[in-house]
Design a protein around this nucleic acid. Structure first.
Lengths: 359, 359
DNA sequence: AACGGCTGTTGACACGTTTCATTTGCCGCG
DNA sequence: CGCGGCAAATGAAACGTGTCAACAGCCGTT
């Protein structure tokens, strides 16, 4: 019950406190016989290091924090997986925090992280408004890496995907399929991801097409369904025939609502999503989507963070930008024939890796 | 850069260290004018408490840890949401760890948590093998609550859903629909959730039906697709007409593979999943599924943990068991007519709440 | 035998808090 | 004027580590 400390261990092993500490942190500095005795004492007492004391002494912790925008979105859990592997390789622990698109909660998390003196923070911010908060972290010497968010900032790294390009890919695809009335579903527009994807879409249109924007309050399936209702309620000759959604959750919601109301996908309405989460391919009308290298995003971000944490002075801030890739599936194919399975190509993998190298 | 400490604040405000501490922790003990001066000094210096020192002194941290089995499974992110709200209400921070069905990683996380002297741990263990590890945590005085896992243990609380009942609901449903050849898709069988659901299914069958088991190595969409291939490859008169999957990810994988290979759902094969994650309803053939009160599961677990942490001696360990509920949608309806949307009923909510009260 | 060098070990201090017994200053009351 | 009592502030002692200068013991060299 009462946790034993290093002093008890020392006593039991008949050595000094410093020696026990050395056994734990610099095992080669201590004679094998002594080391053995100390290790036995540790085992007998069930001694476990007290991380608070250790951190207090060291001045900083050995864990990095990931603040995710929305854990319920599989996109972020995939990014997380990448960060986790990189973290393991770098020998640091990873703790996860979920802001859930809630600015207040995000702020609370950052406060805690600052008090904890974490080694660094990987964050996809709720909005640009937290910027001053992040500046504060950086001033205090806590490295910050922006994830899935580009940045011109010179005092931090960022890892992002070219969302404008992604939007353009989607737009060009829809235009090429001959759609005249096109809709963009997404929001809130305070998220750069949303505005960028919208911008790309607009840039891809030739002017012959009509564009309609259906703003949503967030990026969830439920919001997608609500947008889907509005689309389905339009008369067939006013209804957009091509819909680009700011992420796959929205797209799945729209898709579901179409099916439920008898609007055929892709014959009546073509749908293109964004992120290419696993559920996109698993939808019974497999969803076309703009694929992002999710795991790599996380891995690259964690690597940059570790690099900065390990050598703050030599470190040069970098802004890595990956290229997205359009994956066309049945939901936006004019031909109704079943699309073949589209496994991730080796070529695509190679391309992502290349993009990661500093430009 | 150099982080300021309480001493600098004291100096700047012209008071003693103890007074600054009192301003932070017992503001009413200090005269308004002094308090004001101290707060100003804090603001000017950008002082932030050092949590390590605080914890060292206090002996324990103010955060609880959630170790999730697989964050990529929306089931767990929903559970998490419940835990987060309960944590906020209780005034503790929540950090999330992901074991990803990997025992070694789970173990590493537990080691760290023990060193951190967290307030408590919410965990869905990878297997029963970690039990000794958890015992150790408990001995050390760190409360542990099992999530989504029943337990006869008398030294910890648990919050679970009656998985045997859930399996039976699914089985009865399939039997009632007249299916003669039924398959169970799920694994690994080291997970109690899997064996329990299987057990329930078996119990529901009358003996007239044939049961085939398709074991999987994990509970992912990919594993479901592989199982789906095997099912689709069977000749129509050997193929099961009713499939019960141990979770929705598997079910979605099976569903996708059926659709892709021209096996009609539900006409040729009926599918029932488990968890009723949002994506289940969003599938274009909406998925029948056994619903668990996910958020409540998390909330109840966190509440039990807080109760124990706040008053370890008076606390009585409890084992809360929720009742699952079958939600029938199109994927298992003999009639092909579109199923109506099935929003969560108020009655169901009430029932869950009732179940939460100690029996 | 004196000395330098090497390995292993020690002991004391510092890290930044919180706590608590003690002190200070003040006011009103006898 | 002295005293008790109260509010406010103080200072020192922990909490459990890691570090580092100092030290002991030993061996080989001169």
């Amino acid at each position: 019950m009462a946790t034993s400390n290093i002093k008890e261990v020392a006593q039991r092993a008949g050595v000094s406190i410093g020696t026990v500490s050395n056994v734990l942190n610099h095992p080669d500095m201590v004679a094998p016989s002594t080391r053995q005795r100390v290790l036995e004492a540790i085992a007998e007492l069930g001694y476990v290091r007290n991380d608070s004391a250790r951190q207090l002494r060291a001045g900083r912790s050995r864990t990095i924090a990931v603040v995710a925008l929305d854990l319920a979105n599989p996109f972020f859990t995939d990014v997380l997986r990448g960060a986790e592997t990189a973290g393991e390789d770098g020998g640091v622990n990873i703790m996860i925090f979920n802001s859930g698109e809630d600015a207040a909660r995000e702020r609370r998390h950052l406060d805690v992280l600052e008090e904890q003196r974490v080694l660094g923070v990987l964050i996809t911010p709720v909005s640009d408004a937290v910027d001053t908060r992040l500046e504060q972290l950086i001033e205090r010497g806590i490295p910050v890496v922006l994830v899935d968010r580009g940045s011109g900032q010179h005092n931090r790294c960022s890892v992002a995907v070219d969302d404008v390009l992604g939007g353009r890919l989607a737009g060009e695809h829809l235009a090429q399929q001959g759609h005249q009335r096109i809709a963009f579903v997404g929001g809130p527009f305070s998220l750069p991801q949303v505005t960028d994807r919208h911008t790309g879409l607009v840039a891809a249109l030739t002017g012959k097409q009509q564009l309609q924007v259906l703003p949503t309050s967030n990026l969830t399936v439920a919001a997608g369904r609500r947008a889907g209702e509005r689309i389905a309620d339009l008369s067939p000759d006013a209804r957009p025939t091509g819909v680009f959604c700011a992420n796959d959750l929205l797209a799945l919601g729209v898709l579901q609502e179409m099916t439920m109301r008898g609007v055929r996908v892709p014959q009546d309405v073509a749908i293109v999503g964004y992120d290419d989460i696993d559920f996109a391919a698993a939808a019974a009308v497999p969803l076309s989507s703009v694929r992002q290298p999710r795991e790599q995003l996380g891995r690259a971000a964690a690597q940059l963070l570790l690099e900065e944490a390990n050598d703050p002075h030599r470190h040069q801030h970098r802004h890595v930008v990956f290229r997205p890739e359009l994956v066309v599936r049945e939901s936006s194919s004019r031909t109704t024939r079943r699309a073949a399975r589209a496994p991730r190509s080796a070529a695509a993998d190679a391309r992502d890796t290349a993009a990661h190298d500093p430009a």
